[in-house]
Design a protein around this nucleic acid. Structure first.
Lengths: 205, 205
DNA sequence: TTGTCATGAAAACAAATGTACTCTAATACA
DNA sequence: TGTATTAGAGTACATTTGTTTTCATGACAA
């Protein structure tokens, strides 16, 4: 959470600002002054008006005068970041082109029931999935629809969950690591529960 | 953008719904019925109420009765996804624990002036950055503050941009690949412009 | 035609709400 | 101590706004 600490706001203004942000995140619309009044445990709208005025002067919020619940938080609304070009990670060096499009990360997040798993270990290292990475997974409804070569998270009851390449051959399931140090696991379809298939990898440095 | 086409809404409802979504995205608050009336080129609020009622019945929107501008779009609001536990990507298999916290990807996006670059080539493959990955970078203000071992995007004027490990030794800059097939590049500090340092890696499957 | 239904116009009403004003209590400061 | 400043209570008021009701129009089926 973004706690506003290092700014030029008084405690009262800060408390109100944080509450407003939280309210607007939850409800997708602005609170009314009287709601803020109650939330701040006040019994008159005047102090709220004063604090809002200060927040507005300092550039934190804005609203349409006279209109009900028209507050906006003046803040960078980010759904993506600009893609500034491509970089060479090889021998030949490519040019750095400016501002083509936007990288939208949230599209993956908007898929239904997406969940994340943190990766332990290095068995997927050859697929460039390292220890500590977060993998974003989409639930698998139908185990029969999984394509060979998909990376899945699978639970073998009694053992636990693992991230592996999925292969199916002659009625048998093979879960293969992307690391030659590990042997493939061979299973029957009814011995394993597939939780999700890999959508994306996220690594924060 | 999400254009609502394949749903059970009439054209009029669809047009209103799309307009509402667009308005709320721009203004961070709900429009009033009279605003919708004007936007839909109507001269009475009644048709809007009717359409809103239908949108609500079909589960697209909700609002607080009698309260001004309290509409919400019933939609998955996602800033993060639940982290469902950890998966083994190694020999030992770990347990799959339920619902601990949320993975917030947007925190990185909120840093100032973050930009993305798409990666070409495999020179960073040993750092688990593969061809086609998107790297999120934070601008470097001060080249002197870069720590050894940081992954940076650097532009060598006349040549182009490359993603490499940064090392500084005895006044010289070394840009090293994470791939033994590539030789380190040795440069003077004034021969190179550093654009950003690595914040995160994003790979969409 | 006739009745029904849906859509929209028009008007009216009451509640919600922003705003302004006065007054009091607390606080800071000289 | 006395005075200025500020925060907050209390109140009042006009506008905004959701809601209801009535009426007109047109489409459509019986």
């Amino acid at each position: 959470m973004t706690t506003s600490a290092d700014n030029n706001l008084t405690d009262a203004q800060n408390e109100l600002y944080d509450w407003i942000k939280s309210y607007m995140k939850d409800f997708q619309h602005s609170p009314s002054i009287r709601q803020m009044m109650e939330a701040m445990r006040l019994k008159s709208p005047a102090p709220i008006q004063s604090r809002l005025k200060h927040l507005q002067e300092k550039g934190y919020i804005s609203w349409q005068e006279g209109k009900a619940r028209t507050m906006q938080i003046v803040d960078e609304i980010i759904e993506g970041v600009p893609i500034m070009g491509s970089v060479a990670a090889g021998g030949l060096i490519e040019t750095y082109s400016d501002l083509q499009e936007n990288l939208d990360i949230t599209d993956v997040l908007k898929k239904k029931d997406v969940f994340a798993l943190s990766v332990n270990g290095d068995s997927m290292i050859d697929a460039c999935i390292a220890d500590g990475d977060m993998v974003l997974m989409e639930p698998i409804k139908d185990a029969y629809s999984i394509r060979n070569g998909t990376i899945v998270s699978a639970m073998v009851p009694g053992l636990g969950t693992t991230l592996k390449y999925f292969f199916k051959k002659e009625g048998k399931i093979f879960l293969e690591a992307a690391n030659t140090a590990y042997e493939p696991i061979e299973l029957n379809l009814d011995e394993v529960v597939f939780q999700g298939k890999l959508l994306a990898v996220w690594r924060k440095i």
